[in-house]
Amino acid sequence: MPEVLVVDDSKVMRDMVVACLRPYPGLNFTHASSGLEAIERLSLSPYDLVVLDLNMPDIGGIEVVEFVRGQDHLRALPIIIVTTRGDDASRTRALTAGANRFMTKPFKPDDILAEARGLLEEKPA
């Protein structure tokens, strides 16, 4: 069963992301409310997809991406970055750091679902 880590300091936003991805059958969701918690969880158990907010209180999404990409066993982990309009500069930085996809709020539920589907299915089984 694919494991998805949803990282955002806003609970409502995490719930929305989960609701958007729910139509994809068989996903298991874990919440993380901070970048540090995301790193902790990633070090403790394997995940198949990370949905990551950029703007968080302790360390931001980009630092999480950089950290993840610096780890051998996490190098191929698909990451979708979610951020807010007006953060265009971060887009380049996030993609350079190694994020796979970039969604800007507001996004349509179907759009993030399609991106997740693509990333989960292109991954070698």
């Binding site: 806003s10 409502v12 936003m13 929305m16 703007n55 807010t84 309009r85 007006g86 709020k105 507001p106």
Partner: peptide
């Protein structure tokens, strides 16, 4: 700044 950033993002999602 962070509070307003989050408000903005959430408000965009619920239109």
């Amino acid at each position: 700044f962070r509070a307003l950033h989050t408000i903005k993002g959430l408000s965009a999602m619920v239109d």
